[in-house]
């Protein structure tokens, strides 16, 4: 059993070999983003853009604020919806010829890949700096790359867990652990794939035996952790870091078995009415400067081969990032989720 686990981990590590190796390098300071004058001028003329995202309202508002600090003349209007609703909106609008988004940003690369035909050719100036394993289409780019961590409430947990495997320990049973439901979207799907492929084939079963409290998405879970509704929870680092910075009684760590990361898929629809503003926004977001912002200020990781920064508390020597194999990411989805629902007793 243990041997098998080891070998699987080795396979995974080699699958993302370049990325893992890259991240272990010392981070370098981000160079400032310098767009072409022509693009800036064209974006200024357009003056606005409409941004569809499946990330969280507040997180994305901070991104918009940071972008506007550099380029105050582009007004960004945001539509935020959960993963499923956003996809429906995009599909329906597109079918009716009314897709108004200038940028669509989604956590589920599989769903976005299926809509590839709606997007125009786009690549950022630093396209070659990105990990090939994080790319699913030449039109879609990992604007955001959140990573999974484990957080706990320091007021409630005296003997904190140290690894993913610790979350299966009976001492954390009876609803002390909070979990986001498997079918909530691409982010969680990535983690539960990691759990089964890297940690243990029966990890779900062992973890579910602790009777975790289930939450519909990561954001309310992070809030519940701060309030003490649950004591321990696997969380996307960016969802809990801001709270810790504000002084909430939480501690976060990246477990040594690996850090599943979730490269987003972001693109510019063919029907974009403000393609230059959209391009400027994405160029900036994908530039080392933009990525540095999401890492430093928001607690994300990155899909850049050479990260300009490592997030607070992330030591590449201890924790390795893990990117799922995209083919399996798509193919295993329905079957495995159904199994996950059964194991966790979640109704769908």
């Amino acid at each position: 059993m243990k041997r098998m686990l080891m070998s699987r981990r080795q396979v995974m590590a080699s699958a993302v070999g370049i990325g893992a190796a890259a991240i272990t390098r010392r981070s370098v300071a981000a160079q400032p983003f310098t767009p072409s004058a022509g693009l800036v001028e064209a974006a200024r003329k357009e003056g606005k853009m409409i941004y569809y995202t499946a990330s969280f309202t507040e997180v994305e508002q901070e991104v918009i604020n940071a972008f506007n600090k550099r380029f105050p003349f582009v007004r960004v209007e945001m539509v935020r919806a959960s993963g499923g609703q956003l996809i429906t909106r995009v599909k329906t609008e597109a079918a009716a010829g009314k897709l108004v988004a200038d940028v669509v940003d989604h956590s589920d690369r599989g769903l976005m890949k299926a809509l590839e035909h709606l997007f125009q050719d786009y690549a950022p100036p630093n396209a070659s700096d990105y990990l090939p394993s994080a790319l699913v289409s030449p039109r879609l780019w990992p604007r955001l790359t959140p990573g999974w961590s484990i957080a706990y409430n320091t007021e409630l947990v005296k003997n904190p867990p140290k690894t993913w495997m610790d979350l299966t320990k009976p001492e954390y049973a009876k609803g002390q652990i909070g979990q986001v439901i498997g079918p909530s979207g691409g982010t969680t799907w990535t983690r539960i794939m990691f759990e089964r492929q890297v940690l243990a084939e029966d990890y779900w079963k062992r973890q579910a035996a602790t009777k975790p409290a289930l939450y519909p998405s990561g954001a309310p879970l992070s809030d519940a952790l701060v309030r003490g509704e649950v004591s321990i929870a696997p969380l996307i680092y960016n969802a809990i870091l801001p709270k810790k910075r504000d002084g909430a009684p939480v501690e976060i760590f990246f477990p040594p078995e690996g850090v599943p990361i979730v490269p987003y898929a972001t693109g510019i629809p063919k029907t974009s009415a403000n393609p230059n503003a959209a391009r400027l926004f994405l160029d900036w977001s994908l530039s080392p400067e933009g990525q540095a912002f999401t890492i430093k200020d928001q607690g994300n990781l990155t899909s850049l081969k050479e990260p300009p920064f490592n997030p607070e508390g992330f030591d590449p020597k201890v924790a390795k990032v893990w990117v799922p194999d995209f083919k399996q990411f798509v193919e295993l989805h329905d079957k495995w989720l159904e199994e996950w629902n059964t194991v966790y007793g979640y109704r769908q």
């Binding site: 993963g83 499923g84 769903l111 079918p183 979207g185 799907w189 519909p216 769908q348």
Partner: peptide, 8 residues
Amino acid sequence: ALTSWAPP
């Protein structure tokens, strides 16, 4: 929940 799962 049915409308917010991915895919909905």
